[in-house]
């Protein structure tokens, strides 16, 4: 953009800008787009295979090949995956896991973001003695393998009578979401102009007043980024779900794995793929809708790990 604004004199001296226009089908372009298209096929293939398989009947799967589009499109596998597939003695399909995941997701996302945003705000604007030390421990803690903390948390949850309940899992998600979210919010609040904070201070606003009336309204984008990060992260979690809940409260990923990898009965690949797609649908929709913000979320985690 800025280049077009340059004075015409230098333009005359330099001659035309940019590289020489090339034919659309130069060797470079064929190589470039060919490679990218080939890789795209590799990336899209599994999704395509899942969709195609989930729309076929079992006889067609046994006879045909997995890449062939369905001859007789049937939505029965989807219905079965959602409402009839069995895990152990429960035969009400993935709908149960979906409900559990929603019940885990909503409070976890709300709680973790509320806590982490206030934390980040305190770290950015109200530093106190030791605040940076705790923050450093928190960030280092993000690299500790979950396996070393899993059992002590079992004991803690048992002590407060939350082991096996949805709320126990909500608490676990809040705790483990804290490092990345606090980092995200701290960096964002630090980047806001300090005059803003000082002006609010002079006007007599206190800790919570500034947070709710100045910081919060200015940080909607970063809250959206945090939400995307948490929704996909918590929805995709398997480890915490399998350890801290019991069969009735299993989140969707755990139930999905139990349905597909169950050793009893005949394998119904079409139902399995429909179930897999159903579980992947929520993060996929978020990904395709949010676009650049999703990228920003993962970049935020990467820039200053």
């Amino acid at each position: 953009m800025a280049e077009t604004m340059s004075p015409p004199k230098s333009r005359l001296l330099d001659g035309p800008r940019g590289s020489k226009p090339k034919s659309r089908f130069s060797r470079r372009n064929i190589f470039l787009y060919g490679t990218l298209l080939l890789v795209s096929v590799y990336y899209l293939l599994p999704l395509y295979v899942m969709v195609v398989t989930s729309l076929k009947g079992m006889p067609e799967i046994r006879l045909g090949n997995i890449f062939a589009p369905p001859v007789d499109i049937t939505f029965e596998p989807w219905v079965k995956a959602w409402a009839e597939a069995c895990t152990g003695i429960n035969c009400d399909g993935l709908s149960r896991g979906f409900g559990n995941s929603i019940k885990i997701l909503v409070p976890s996302v709300a709680l973790s973001i509320a806590i982490a945003s206030v934390n980040g705000y305190a770290l950015a604007n109200w530093k106190f003695k030791g605040s940076e030390v705790f923050f450093t421990i928190l960030i280092i803690g993000a690299f500790i393998p979950y396996q070393t903390m899993i059992y002590p948390i079992v004991i803690m949850l048992r002590e407060i009578k939350l082991m096996g309940s949805l709320w126990g899992l909500v608490l676990v998600h809040t705790v483990f979401g804290m490092p990345i979210l606090t980092l995200l919010f701290r960096n964002y609040f630090t980047s806001l102009p300090e005059e803003l904070f000082k002006a609010a201070r002079v006007d007599g606003a206190g800790f919570w007043g500034i947070y709710f009336r100045v910081m919060l309204p200015m940080s909607i984008p970063i809250f959206v980024v945090a939400m995307i990060l948490q929704v996909t992260g918590i929805w995709n979690d398997f480890l915490f779900g399998v350890i801290y809940t019991k069969p009735e409260t299993y989140p969707m990923t755990v139930q999905l794995n139990n349905i597909v990898n169950s050793v009893q009965g005949v394998k119904e690949y079409n139902v399995n793929m429909a179930a897999t797609l159903l579980t992947g649908l929520v993060p996929l929709i978020i990904y395709f809708v949010s676009g650049k913000l999703f990228v920003r979320g993962i970049a935020a985690g990467a820039v200053k790990g």
Partner: peptide, 15 residues
Amino acid sequence: FLYPFALSFIVTGLA
């Protein structure tokens, strides 16, 4: 290229 990253490892593994 990025969409698989949005998926759960469980979904990826099963696919």
